[in-house]
Design a protein around this nucleic acid. Structure first.
Lengths: 341, 341
DNA sequence: CTGAAAGCGCTAACAC
DNA sequence: GTGTTAGCGCTTTCAG
């Protein structure tokens, strides 16, 4: 492994000059610059990043903590984050918490050990008071996550609006008994969504029955179970269901089809995230589209600024709006054709 | 940031002793060890990883290069790789090549700059002669990728067997005109698969018509296009199609349903990877299950060994077998019920 | 068992 | 414009 010393020797110059060339400092004569370049080329020299990190006290790496890469919402987020990071000459390291508070702490430790310059948190598993302590070591930016007490930047979608609009749409389609379904986390995200859901019901003067609440639904299999639960109720069944996940919605629809139910006539279903699967199912799934790219770009922008200014605390909120995409899982094809919504 | 020096001072000992405690060296008296521990605790000391990397000439980080995290096959691979890595006290950094040779090189450079101790390549975009040069800087392990000339460990599934078995199944279902569909990469993986496909045809004395080859299919939209292409052919249509991707298969099936085709009667379809979607579509999709976890574990095992022995070259092949999962997209429900395959 | 000291590769004052 | 030099924080001989 060639070092900067080797390059300097070969070029007949000092380490300093070589370093200046590497870091594109001004005040290096063109002739020497060329000499250095040649020497680097000949030796196949590449700067050692550990040495640079140690010296500069920064690594050029950002950690993104997500529950699971398998979740399409998060993998889409990563795609854009990664792109944005590389534009700013930073690298992304992707860390899966698997919804585990312990793993989350383990990864937050990357900040302490100075292995990363900042952490993007997309779903907080630990209590904020615990996470907060890591702010001594570097910036933390919340993306897709919201935390009332947090004194950091937060980039998130208006979840309340999403819950509200989707539910209102179901009500407009004539439903009065609507089930509610979300993931297993009593997160602020889920809470806001539920608030919106209930607001829509309240406005229409509809009471909510806790029997129609499913709060442990993440996978398509959960969707299958939920459908079977509903089906086995002889009466008092909901006629529509709001879900917080396209996968769950797909599970419901898939199982309903096998039981010869007609969606949306027998049960209207809404999903969340506008994943590929929403267009593959039959019927296609009405869903909430999140502005994932915009949120990712803003997140990285804010992160870069915090790193630059070495300013780790300070609340800053960026709330994004959503879009309801109406498809056949809530609206009969005939209706969709007649009235362009 | 507390350093090892601070800890030493506070404990009234030398840096050396503190270092010995950190690295669990023997020959430290219990009393002093305790003192050190206390000092570390009080100062909230965490070793600086850049300094350690610089000193030790290793980082404890492995890079995994994958085309896209969005692809469920790869995200599943990552899940297991990550688990295995953390068991060996290593971290994984996930790098998306986006199928770009340039990005791949950029990430291979992590090896040169000593930012990682090893690279796992799941899909080589550059010619092997180019990649080979990086072996001077650290171990490269191929996982899911195969390369005739490569002098490194290779962990992969028997793709030929997969192509063969799936196609043979279609032939057994009575098909004589079978279309072939794969991703856009003329990789060794795709080649082996196609070999198996053609072997099955040859054995049954069936000639293959290049009009039935689709070699640009990756997404469900590609599947939709392929289906429409087939449909628009008045005659000379295939009665079955082998695909290299569940997503493509889902696209075909989804569009076929909209056109009121009956799958498998009008067109039998096989997928690849046994993704969640195969069980959600109606009909469910016959597919090839890869032993993803086993492959991931073996990959990490081999990687750790190479790192330990500092032995970067040396061919080593681990070939895994696949499993054909037969569902309704190739076999009428009646048949499935009657004959337990 | 413990400590002094050298040095991993790089950058940035500071001097010239 | 260019070079000398002092560390960044850590581990590891080597000497006691």
């Amino acid at each position: 492994m060639a070092t900067i010393e080797d390059v300097a020797r070969r070029a007949g110059l000092s380490r300093t000059t070589v370093s200046r060339v590497i870091n594109e400092h001004p005040y290096v004569s063109i002739a020497k610059k060329k000499k250095v370049m040649e020497a680097m080329e000949e030796l196949g020299y590449v700067p050692n990043s550990a040495a640079r990190s140690l010296r500069n006290q920064r690594t050029g790496v950002i950690a993104v903590l997500i529950p699971r890469v398998m979740n399409p919402f998060f993998s889409q987020l990563i795609e854009t984050l990664e792109h944005a990071a590389s534009e700013s000459f930073h690298q992304l390291i992707i860390c899966q918490t698997q919804y585990s508070a312990k793993k989350e702490l383990m990864y937050l430790n990357l900040l302490k050990t100075r292995q990363v310059d900042g952490v993007i948190l997309t779903s907080a598993e630990n209590d904020w008071s615990v996470i907060e302590e890591y702010l001594d070591y570097g910036p933390i930016v919340l993306c897709n996550e919201f935390e009332e007490r947090a004194n950091v930047p937060m980039i998130f979608m208006n979840q309340k609006e999403a819950g509200y609009k989707a539910t209102k749409h179901l009500i407009e389609m004539g439903h009065r008994k609507i089930a509610y379904c979300c993931g297993r986390y009593r997160s602020n995200v889920a809470n806001a969504r539920e608030e919106g859901f209930k607001k829509a019901l309240a406005e229409a003067g509809i009471a909510f029955d806790e029997i129609d609440a499913f709060r442990e639904a993440i996978t398509s299999e959960d969707g299958i179970d939920i459908f079977n639960g509903i089906r086995s109720r002889g009466s008092n069944r909901p006629t529509a269901i709001f879900t917080g996940s396209d996968e769950v919605a797909a599970g419901i629809i898939s199982e309903a089809a096998r039981c010869n139910w007609n969606i949306p006539r027998d049960l209207a279903v809404t999903g969340f995230d506008n994943q590929v699967i929403t267009e593959l199912m039959n019927p296609r799934i009405t869903t909430v589209e999140q502005p994932v790219c915009e949120m990712a770009l803003k997140t990285m922008e804010v992160m870069m600024e915090r790193i630059r200014l070495r300013q780790f605390t300070g609340r800053e909120m960026h709330k994004f709006s959503m879009k309801l995409i109406i498809r056949e899982s809530t609206k009969m094809q005939a209706e969709l054709a007649r009235i362009p919504y």
